[in-house]
Deep mutational scan, measured.
Amino acid sequence: TEKQERAIEYIRRLGYSEEEARRILKKANGNPDLAKEIARRIG
Rank of each mutant, 00 (worst) to 15 (best):
T1Y: 12
T1K: 13
E2A: 13
E2T: 12
E2N: 11
E2K: 12
K3I: 13
K3G: 13
K3T: 13
K3N: 13
K3Q: 15
K3W: 08
Q4A: 13
E5I: 12
E5G: 07
R6M: 14
R6L: 14
A7F: 06
A7Q: 02
A7T: 10
I8K: 04
I8M: 07
I8N: 02
E9A: 10
E9Y: 06
E9W: 08
E9G: 06
Y10M: 06
Y10V: 06
Y10R: 03
Y10H: 06
I11A: 01
I11E: 00
R12G: 03
R13N: 14
R13E: 13
R13F: 10
R13S: 15
L14A: 03
L14Y: 05
L14S: 02
G15L: 02
G15K: 01
G15T: 00
G15A: 01
Y16L: 06
Y16Q: 01
S17W: 02
S17F: 02
S17N: 07
S17K: 04
E18Q: 08
E18G: 05
E18Y: 11
E18F: 08
E19F: 13
E19D: 12
E19T: 10
E19N: 09
E20C: 14
E20R: 05
A21S: 05
A21F: 01
A21Y: 01
A21P: 00
R22P: 00
R22K: 08
R22A: 06
R22Q: 08
I24T: 02
I24W: 04
I24L: 08
I24G: 00
L25Y: 05
L25D: 00
K26A: 14
K26I: 11
K26P: 00
K26E: 11
K26Y: 11
K26T: 10
K27E: 13
K27W: 15
K27L: 15
K27Y: 15
K27F: 15
A28V: 05
A28G: 03
A28I: 03
N29T: 04
N29D: 09
G30H: 06
G30S: 05
N31M: 06
N31Q: 07
P32S: 08
P32F: 08
P32R: 03
P32W: 07
D33A: 10
D33V: 10
D33N: 09
D33C: 07
L34Y: 07
L34V: 11
L34N: 04
L34D: 05
A35M: 04
A35V: 03
K36Y: 11
K36I: 15
K36L: 14
E37I: 13
E37P: 01
I38N: 04
I38D: 03
A39R: 02
A39Q: 02
A39K: 02
R40K: 11
R40V: 10
R40M: 13
R40P: 02
I42N: 13
I42H: 14
I42M: 15
I42V: 11
G43Y: 15
G43T: 15
G43S: 15
G43H: 15
G43Q: 15
G43W: 15
